[in-house]
């Protein structure tokens, strides 16, 4: 009886969730667009977008129009895509490492991406593509080092998070060294702010790059969804149900590194999104990756959109780096998971 009722709840949720997810995402984006400086209303949004679509609407004053179109809209959309990207990375890495604490930030991949991006910035080659390429090289180096240090015990070793933290510290130190060596006070200040994770410099090109990367990565990860389910039972069990374990790991490690690199080069290293979001989604939509991955993407988008809205208004006109809020939410959850595993 109990089990059939649980099944009913599940199927009930399954039919409501897609609609709920879509509504939550649209409402969050719309609300976040009108929150903050400038006194923007929903009517202003309609007119800004209407003008772009060639609809017969009253155009706004050029200053307000460019505030909304050039700053606010890209910023909120970037928050949504980066949030989705980090949540998907977290969900995939947790499955690959069989560790509930895995996320691109805690495994040191974000720090590696930061180092690569900063290297490109201080040497002054800095185009968007150059910074992203640097971040990708950094992220892959961090992953390579992590795998090297875990050689022998395997990717799903219990040491993976501890090793990841060490790798992250190394790359953070390298980043500081690069910044100090560059000796330019302005660069140092802006890069330091970016390193903490901030959406203040969001532009349309970053939004588009990040959206394409996130959508492609989600598609690839979704292709491997049942492989990720099977990997939860270890490499041998996964292989015996037909999963090509080596290929799955390789493809998904490269995909998550790339996505992390794109996210970091757009907004800096925002931590804990990949940790928090998949845990919440497992609770609501269940642990199967077929549903976990897309809902993590949506929930990650909603989460970061709200975190960024908070970052804009809490100490206005002063802006708080959004990474501060995600860390404030993530650290207690990290401790909760550790405690549940009986390691604290």
């Amino acid at each position: 009886m109990i089990s059939s009722r649980q099944a009913d709840v599940r199927t009930g949720r399954a039919s409501v969730l897609p609609a709920a997810a879509a509504v939550a995402l649209l409402a969050s984006v719309a609300t976040s667009l009108v929150i903050g400086t400038g006194g923007i209303g929903y009517g202003d949004l309609v007119s800004v977008i209407g003008v772009r679509l060639g609809l017969p609407v009253e155009p706004l004053a050029p200053l307000t129009d460019s505030l909304i179109w050039q700053l606010r809209i890209p910023r909120v959309l970037l928050a949504a895509t980066v949030g989705a990207a980090l949540a998907v990375c977290g969900a995939v890495l947790q499955a690959l490492t069989r560790n509930a604490l895995a996320d691109p930030y805690l495994l040191g991949v974000s720090s590696g991406a930061s180092t690569g991006a900063v290297l490109v910035v201080v040497t002054g080659i800095g185009s968007t593509v150059g910074v992203t390429a640097g971040a990708l090289a950094g992220a892959l180096s961090a992953f390579g080092l992590l795998l090297l240090l875990l050689r022998g015990s395997g990717l799903d070793s219990l040491r993976v998070v501890l090793t990841g933290v060490v790798v992250g510290q190394l790359f953070t130190a390298l980043t500081s060294l690069l910044l100090m060596a560059s000796g330019d006070a302005d660069t140092t200040r802006s890069v330091t702010y970016w390193l903490l994770g901030s959406l203040a410099s969001a532009r349309w090109d970053g939004v588009i790059l990040c959206a394409i990367a996130t959508a492609s990565a989600l598609l690839v990860a979704r292709y491997y969804a049942s492989s990720l389910d099977a990997l939860g039972f270890g490499a041998d069990t996964a292989a015996s149900v037909g999963v090509d374990v080596r290929r799955t790991r390789l493809v998904l490690l490269v995909v998550t590194s790339t996505l992390t690199a794109v996210a970091v080069s757009a907004v800096g290293a925002i931590g804990f999104v990949g940790l928090i979001v998949p845990h919440g989604v497992r609770f609501l939509a269940g642990p199967l990756h077929r549903t976990l991955l897309p809902y993590s993407a949506v929930a990650g988008a909603v989460f970061l959109v709200w975190a960024d809205a908070l970052a804009r208004v809490l100490l206005a006109p002063q802006e708080v780096p959004v990474g501060v809020f995600t860390a404030l939410a993530g650290v207690p959850l990290f401790l909760l998971i550790l405690r549940r595993r009986g390691e604290l």
Binding site: Y223, A225, D229, A230, F233, G234, T237, R282
Partner: peptide, 22 residues
């Protein structure tokens, strides 16, 4: 193994080799 899958989902893993990824 600490998994959050349901028992039926675990048994369904045995059908993985016959299912297309999508």
């Amino acid at each position: 193994v600490a998994s959050e899958l349901r028992v039926a989902d675990v048994v369904m893993l045995g059908r993985t080799p016959y299912r297309s990824p999508w």
